[in-house]
């Protein structure tokens, strides 16, 4: 145990939050993946052997836990446009903070899946020449995504650097 301040709380920075509509979008995505094993567990438990209630129970507990974590995860996502770089923070258990200099961006990718379209949110992913750069922001308001995308593109152009 330690009393040290978290290295992720940078002084003098107010994080931009993403849209809370990301929470239901992610909840539905989780539900779509977990509903099948849950149903299988229930059906097996009813038809074959009551021991399969354990399977259904495990899935249900996992679902409940993920449902809680998703809320915290979405709250943990944050980004800041600084003068020369973009900071992206995410993760509750495994925390991650990425610093992407504008001049290093190769291109910006805007995506919107079917669920995201229903909830009216978009994702933005930044690509640098390094494949290991994991800089994506989920759950952006479409207007904010467009603004950020154009802003990043113009800033990137102004600060272009080679590899």
């Amino acid at each position: 145990m330690t009393t040290e301040p978290s290295p992720f709380d940078l002084p003098g920075i107010t994080w931009q939050r993403v849209s809370p509509r990301l929470v239901p979008a992610r909840q539905i995505a989780v539900a779509l993946t977990l509903v099948v094993p849950l149903l299988v567990g229930v059906v097996l438990a009813v038809l074959v052997h009551p021991a399969f209630w354990v399977l259904a129970g495990v899935v249900a507990v996992l679902w409940a836990w993920i449902a809680i974590v998703v809320v915290r995860q979405v709250r943990a996502i944050g980004y800041v446009e600084r003068e020369d770089d973009l900071l992206i923070r995410k993760g509750v258990m495994f925390r991650n903070l990425v610093v992407v200099p504008y001049g290093r961006m190769q291109y910006v990718e805007e995506t919107q899946g079917p669920l995201a379209r229903i909830f009216g949110i978009k994702s933005l992913q930044l690509h640098t020449a390094a494949a290991t750069t994991d800089a994506s922001i989920d759950g952006l308001d479409p207007a904010e995504a467009a603004r950020l995308r154009d802003r990043l593109a113009s800033r990137g152009e102004a600060r272009l650097a080679g590899l």
């Binding site: 145990m1 330690t2 040290e4 978290s6 290295p7 992720f8 258990m93 495994f94 925390r95 991650n96 903070l97 990425v98 610093v99 992407v100 200099p101 290093r104 640098t128 020449a129 390094a130 494949a131 290991t132 750069t133 994991d134 800089a135 590899l163």
Partner: peptide, 26 residues
Amino acid sequence: TQSLALQQGPWQRRLGLASVALHVTL
């Protein structure tokens, strides 16, 4: 360096540790 990252897992947090990654091309 292309970009930088600060990473911390649950055990690292308990021990007051964190890792820093420098992203370079593949």
